[in-house]
Nucleic acid binder design. Structure first.
Lengths: 137, 137
DNA sequence: GGTCTAAATGCAAGTTGTTCGCAATTAAAG
DNA sequence: CTTTAATTGCGAACAACTTGCATTTAGACC
């Protein structure tokens, strides 16, 4: 299990490796935290077309390479979905809007069986409140 | 603890009781399930101004009379937040987009203490997958 | 290497949910 | 009944995201 690189994440998937995909994936890997399309856009110097970023995020999400984390202030946040980053809870600060990853020991598998005939594909657990930084004031 | 009426929900709060607030709250109480601004708008025959609905939803949310449930397809969903409807998990169907309330026996109080200095004001637990109706196909 | 083609990109325009400014209306206090 | 501050309706503005289309490009096949 080597480390994540844009190429390793894309290989064996029948996906064209374009320059912008390498750049986008590189930025996603570098940022160790949840990001939105415009976060990426900014971190890349506002040079890449936003439509390209959106299209690639959708593709990466469909491939399971990234996952949706939360939707806040009308903005969708994602994170890398690799072996080293399994599903985990997130904390959203109601004051500063920052999103924190809440790592936890045991894998998140709350009630995978639901009554009736619900098939659970993803479990989302999030907390909202005030983060340590904002508590200080 | 009487039943919910627009007036009982607003009383003692220094909020003007307007005709549209009564209508909006009435619709919210009648619909026993999560709703969006446009759901309300439609259910009221597209007659009330959407801006009014948005402003009232924001106010009701600030007052704790309703709570945000989830944000799906760029649309914010709310539900009534009264004694009879405590925080509970929701299920979002990836196919039909319907939102189900997952009632549960014990109150939802997962990990209210988090490491560091996080103050948790709300805990959100949601499942996404395929609902019973869509499983049948 | 060169050629070809389907897929990806950039750009501009469009869509959608939500917000804002402002004049007209209205709840409710006096 | 009067008064006034809050609320409403309307239209325009906004922001995130999507789409159409011409241009470019990865990579497969010679």
């Amino acid at each position: 299990m080597g480390k994540c690189t844009p190429e390793s994440l894309l290989e064996g998937r029948n996906i064209k490796i374009t320059r912008q995909r390498q750049i986008v994936l590189g930025a996603i890997i570098d940022t160790g935290k949840p990001f939105s399309a415009s976060d990426l856009h900014e971190s890349l110097g506002n040079e890449m077309d936003l439509a390209t970023i959106y299209r690639n995020l959708e593709m990466l999400c469909g491939e399971g390479i990234i996952r949706q984390v939360m939707n806040e202030k009308e903005r969708q946040y994602y994170e890398l979905a690799c072996i080293h980053n399994p599903e985990h809870p997130h904390f959203y600060c109601n004051i500063c809007g920052k999103i924190y990853c809440m790592k936890q020991d045991k894998p998140m598998r709350l009630k995978k069986r639901l009554p009736g005939d619900f098939t659970v594909e993803q479990t989302v657990l999030q907390y909202r409140g005030i983060c340590p930084d904002c508590s200080k004031e």
